[in-house]
Simulated scan of single mutants.
Amino acid sequence: MISFNYETKFSLNNELEVADWIAETIAQEERKEGEINFVFCSDDYLHKLNVEFLNHDTLTDIISFDYSVGKELHGDIYISVDRVNENALEFGVSFEDELARVMIHGVLHYCGYKDKTEDEKALMRSKENDYLGRRS
C-alpha cells in the first residue's frame, strides 16, 4: 500500500493517480508493492533526520529508509517540499515535475538502482525519464 503523509502545509491533490503511477512502476520493475510511506516535510524536518540518522549536516530533497524484503518493496520516503521547490526553480522545471522525479527516484532505489557512479547515475536518470513519461 502506498500512503502519503504530511508534516507541512503541502498536500498532493491527486493522491490516487500518483499511487497508481507508482504501483505501475513497481510492477514494471517486476517488484511487489508493500508498504511505502511518502512523508512530505520542510527543509528543517528533513535536515534533522539527515543529521540524526545519516550524520550529514546538509540539506537534501529526499531521504529514504528501505525496509524491502526480497522483491517486496517497503520503506519510508521523506521529501522536503522546500528543496523540491528550490530545485525546480534551479533546473527550470515545474514543481510537479520535480516532485514526481524525486518520488520515482526513491522508488527506483528500492528496486535496486544506485546513483553513486556516473554509469549508475545515467541509468537512474534514464529510468526516471522513462517512468516520468508514463505519468497520466
Rank of each mutant, 00 (worst) to 15 (best):
E15S: 01
S42A: 06
M103I: 04
S64N: 11
H109L: 05
E90Y: 09
L59T: 13
L54M: 13
G34M: 07
D76H: 08
N37S: 12
D130H: 14
E15A: 00
V18H: 03
Q28R: 07
I77W: 04
I22H: 03
F4C: 08
S64I: 02
Y67V: 07
F91A: 11
G34N: 05
I63V: 12
D44W: 10
A19P: 12
L54G: 07
S64L: 04
E90F: 11
N129H: 09
N85Q: 14
E120K: 00
F95N: 05
Y45M: 11
D130S: 12
F65D: 13
E128L: 11
E128F: 10
E72T: 11
S11A: 13
E52D: 14
L99A: 05
E118P: 07
V102I: 11
E120W: 00
A19I: 01
E120Q: 01
F95S: 05
Y113L: 15
L123H: 09
E52L: 11
E72H: 00
G75A: 02
N87M: 15
E7A: 11
V84R: 07
Y78A: 06
S42F: 13
E52F: 09
E118F: 14
F95T: 04
F91L: 12
D82E: 10
S136T: 14
A27F: 08
R31M: 12
V69Y: 07
V51S: 06
E118L: 14
Y6E: 00
S94D: 06
A100C: 04
A88F: 06
S3V: 13
K121D: 03
L108I: 00
T58R: 11
Y6N: 01
D130Q: 15
I77D: 03
K32V: 00
V51M: 10
S94A: 04
K32P: 00
I63F: 07
M124R: 03
I104G: 01
H109S: 06
T8Y: 06
M1P: 08
L123Y: 09
S126I: 10
H56K: 14
E30M: 06
K121I: 11
I26R: 02
V69C: 03
L16H: 15
E15Q: 02
R101P: 01
L89I: 15
H74K: 11
T58N: 12
